[in-house]
Amino acid sequence: MEDKRDKILKVAVEEFADHGYKAASTNRISEVAGVSKGLIFHYFGSKEKLYTAAVTYSVDLAMQEVPIGEMPTENFMEGAIWSTKQKLHFSKNYPAAFKLIMQSYANPPAALAERLHAYYTEMLQMQDVYMNQIFERVTLRADVVLEDAHDVIRALFDYTIKIATDYIRENPNATMQEMQPLVDKFMHMMAIVERGMIQKT
């Protein structure tokens, strides 16, 4: 029975990622998964709960494929680059799960917005634990607020993932080697953060 539940979740991830919450069809999910619609509601109770379960399933998969505990923390650049490469790899190998995560984070269904916001806040706090370990090994300028530095790095991560998503959408068969310029771009932006961008006279 767990095999059927797992199949429903995998199909639901694809359905919600492709059509969004409102337009997603439990009829299509039951047809593709090869189960009755009644079985879907037996397992999950409602469309809202199925969506939440699909999001949780996707995040769990991401945490499994991108084990944040393995991120290098000895060097700021190495840790940031490792994280970016792993996220790019996940977005390529699991595009539907990645898309659903991004959608549910940036534009969640109104009825689930508060619950998903709390869920992602908890996930980000876990990521911050490791980011803090990296920041502990660097010396920020006296006029730089740690929280602002966090926000800048997170914004760079988000931007890199956005352009990677656009690239993968246009080049679905791209290899990680072909995506190396995206990693190089991130490294260059990180170097600007470290050194600054204004030539002092």
Results as ranks from 00 to 15, higher is better:
I8Q: 02
V11E: 00
V11P: 00
V11Q: 00
V13L: 09
V13Y: 01
E14F: 13
E14M: 15
E14W: 14
E15Q: 15
A17I: 00
A17F: 00
A17K: 01
K22N: 10
K22V: 08
K22L: 12
R28L: 14
I29C: 07
I29M: 12
I29N: 03
E31A: 13
E31V: 10
E31K: 13
V32S: 07
A33G: 07
A33P: 00
V35A: 12
S36V: 06
S36C: 11
I40P: 02
I40R: 02
I40S: 03
G45S: 09
E48G: 03
E48K: 05
L50M: 02
Y51R: 03
A53V: 05
A53R: 04
A53C: 10
A54Q: 02
V55H: 06
T56P: 12
T56S: 12
T56H: 11
V59W: 12
V59F: 09
D60N: 10
D60T: 01
D60V: 04
D60Q: 08
L61A: 08
Q64F: 13
Q64G: 14
Q64D: 15
E65I: 08
E65C: 12
E65D: 10
E65P: 07
V66A: 05
P67M: 08
P67N: 11
I68V: 09
E70Y: 03
E70W: 02
E70C: 03
M71V: 03
P72F: 06
P72I: 02
P72R: 02
P72A: 03
